[in-house]
Write a protein that binds this DNA or RNA. Structure first.
Lengths: 193, 193
DNA sequence: CTGCCACTGAAACGAGTGTTTCAGTAGACC
DNA sequence: GGTCTACTGAAACACTCGTTTCAGTGGCAG
């Protein structure tokens, strides 16, 4: 009979946190229960008991990752800023060394989510696009900016940030990529349309 | 005794092409030899004989995908254009429905390559960044453009294209994402610095 | 003491994995 | 005909996988 996932419990929270750290270190792709359980001081039996199935565990880990992202988004939006300000703050966060592994996991999950629309990843990609667009769309509009074309501006800002992130994660060349962001901000600062 | 990979042969080329098509359809992540072999009219025995190992097969498939990308890059650079022209041509290619599956595979491989620097993917991410930067860097410079800052311009152009691609693959919203590209091109057309 | 509860250990199940062993077959070249 | 090369089929090997079964812990409430 299939195990039913516990919705929450101290032990579950603790093991989820450790599993999350383990996945940040080793990647999601070839994670499997026995090595993971051994590394975090548990057993496959218990993981299945607490999360229902491996897919349930993966979903929980992905949600854990997303919550870290959402925490930043909330803090970034808090003193309301205009679009350039948000882009700058977001890039500072994305480029931080301490977020490399989270963001690598993010790209991995994004890729799998696109390639395999079933599975525990399913809506991961669409969901994070929505999360980020929501943050940037909340930007305080510049005075002379007409609302028409705002969607394009926000989409462009998101594209710049994500594209730069891909480059940074592959090459580690912070200087070059940050210069590109600066160039984009110059562009935003231009007057007219 | 380990099988040695054939470097090339008619049969190998034929099976590689079919395996590539199969992977475009089903993704790389949970590809395995027996189902693949059955689908393309072969057997695990033969795939191992021709490609040496599963990793060898994956490497061959990834190279096959890269060669499709390189073919476009070569054609795109051929009548030398300036940066906006290249961006426009590249976006037309990226946004084409017929390239969706190739590009999805591309993102999946990119993610795995970042998460697992060993394995058959190893340098996939770094390599494609280099491929694309090379194309864009070959852009005919605008007359008044100083060479300083060219690297930033090229990196920004690449980031815009890749970020837009991520968005497009997840949402399928061609209109919104293409509008963002247009907005970027407007930006490029601005005079000054 | 008796239930109940969240949690755990050991072992097995059945299926699927990449890979190897052995034994071929079809065709070209001498 | 004989030999060589390219390719192939069937079966086994030695795993690992997610999951299940069964049999327990220790602690806390009544």
């Amino acid at each position: 009979m299939a195990e039913i996932a516990r919705t929450s419990s101290p032990r579950r929270d603790e093991l989820l946190e450790r599993a999350y750290q383990y996945v940040l270190e080793h990647g999601l792709a070839d994670m499997s229960l026995r090595p993971l359980a051994a590394a975090i001081g548990s057993s496959p039996r218990v993981l299945l008991f607490l999360f229902g199935s491996k897919d349930g565990l993966v979903r929980a880990i992905l949600n854990r990752a997303r919550s870290e992202e959402l925490a930043f988004l909330a803090s970034a939006g808090q003193p309301p800023a205009d679009l350039p300000g948000l882009v700058q703050a977001t890039w500072r966060w994305l480029a931080g060394e301490q977020h490399r592994r989270l963001l690598t996991l993010w790209v991995e999950a994004y890729g799998r989510s696109l390639a395999d629309p079933a599975g525990p990843w399913s809506d991961f990609a669409r969901q994070t696009v929505a999360d980020w667009l929501a943050l940037l769309a909340a930007a305080r509009p510049a005075a002379e900016q007409p609302p028409a074309g705002a969607a394009a501006d926000v989409t462009l800002a998101l594209a710049v940030l994500r594209g730069a992130l891909l480059d940074l994660l592959a090459t580690g060349d912070t200087a070059r990529v940050s210069a590109a962001i600066t160039r984009y901000l110059d562009c935003l600062a231009q007057p007219g349309r």
